[in-house]
Design a protein around this nucleic acid. Structure first.
Lengths: 188, 188
DNA sequence: AATTATCCATAGCGATCGATACGAAACCTA
DNA sequence: TAGGTTTCGTATCGATCGCTATGGATAATT
């Protein structure tokens, strides 16, 4: 998982994976069928072990603003964990791919879209409760938040520290008008 | 350039480049030395022809807020041009790379850092003129803006339309407090 | 203890990678 | 027109890719 996270799907060779796991070729194929299946298992593991902060943040019984705060600060921490590759596997795994690996790239895009949809769901619930300005576009703001998180992933990969990412998260929050207050400067 | 933009450095094979340019192997090596040199020439061309909006926005004689607005809206348009690969070559070219291509990945990271530094310079100039809130961190906000642009690049690659990216740009701007006004909600 | 069955590491499969050697065609010079 | 040179496309280089067949060591059974 760490190798795919660091180098991406295609740039990670089976030789690297073999060495890291101490397995011979037949062992690796008996255990994981093929490279694509192995990558999908790594994706599943990543989803289960590394980004729980997102589901927790979006499902916690707190205000929408607080939920988003937890989401962004959780990303700041998760994307810059010491001893782990920087950023998010869903972004680094295969942003660009050869035609042969399009299926993998599409699958990762699906993961990213699902994250964005989960954010949009949380925002929609917040709107129902009156937790968000009425004139705020749920889909638009979800795309903003998902986009910022993707950007944080790249910043983390470029060496940003957890403190720098936290500042980025705080700045991002400033784009969300405080409760009750109207959204200013939407048309300039 | 389009091939590298679409598939990234490593996933673009010389066979694809040959076919696209209609060149035989010796021709391509006579003209471009090797794949790495060819990629660097594509980078240069990209920088000259596709992202002029950034330099224009940051050097235009307008307020800092207007400069940032132009920068973000320019990115929204440049990252979703019809007939071009989505996103930014500096991001897609080699986010993750094999150990052999680390030099390329590092070079692209340098480009991204330079963009961020250019933004920070513009913000610093704005601060001198009193164009920005005094308590705003120039480096922090530059990292936010650069991060959002990187995120827009990924959203564009995931199929976001120019309108959606424009909304994202407008939302990003909302994090910049209006002139003279203090920055709210920086510590929660 | 002899034989059969099972497992597993090595060696190598075909394909493709980036890059190049070589023979044929074309062109300029004499 | 003949000679010499240069250009250029094909065929192929060694290395590496993901993946698998085979032979030898081990274990189980009669």
């Amino acid at each position: 998982m760490h190798l795919f996270w660091e180098h991406g799907y295609e740039a990670t060779s089976l030789a690297m994976l073999r060495e890291a796991m101490g397995l011979t070729p037949p062992q690796i194929y008996n255990a994981f069928t093929d490279k694509e299946t192995l990558f999908r298992k790594a994706l599943k593991r990543y989803h289960e072990t590394e980004i729980g902060f997102a589901l927790e943040a979006l499902s916690a019984p707190v205000s929408t603003r607080e939920a988003i705060r937890r989401l962004l600060l959780g990303a700041a921490e998760a994307y810059s964990r010491p001893g782990k590759p920087g950023g998010c596997l869903f972004v680094s795994g295969a942003l660009a791919a050869s035609p042969q690996a399009q299926a993998i790239a599409d699958e990762l895009r699906t993961y990213r879209k699902a994250s964005e949809a989960a954010i949009a769901d949380r925002l929609a619930r917040g709107r129902v409760v009156g937790d968000l300005p009425a004139d705020l576009s749920v889909d638009g703001f979800a795309k903003y938040l998902a986009g910022v998180m993707n950007g944080m992933s790249i910043q983390a990969r470029d060496g940003a520290s957890v403190e720098e990412l936290r500042v980025l998260a705080q700045t991002t929050l400033a784009a969300l008008p405080a409760e009750g207050q109207n959204q200013a400067a939407s048309k300039e």
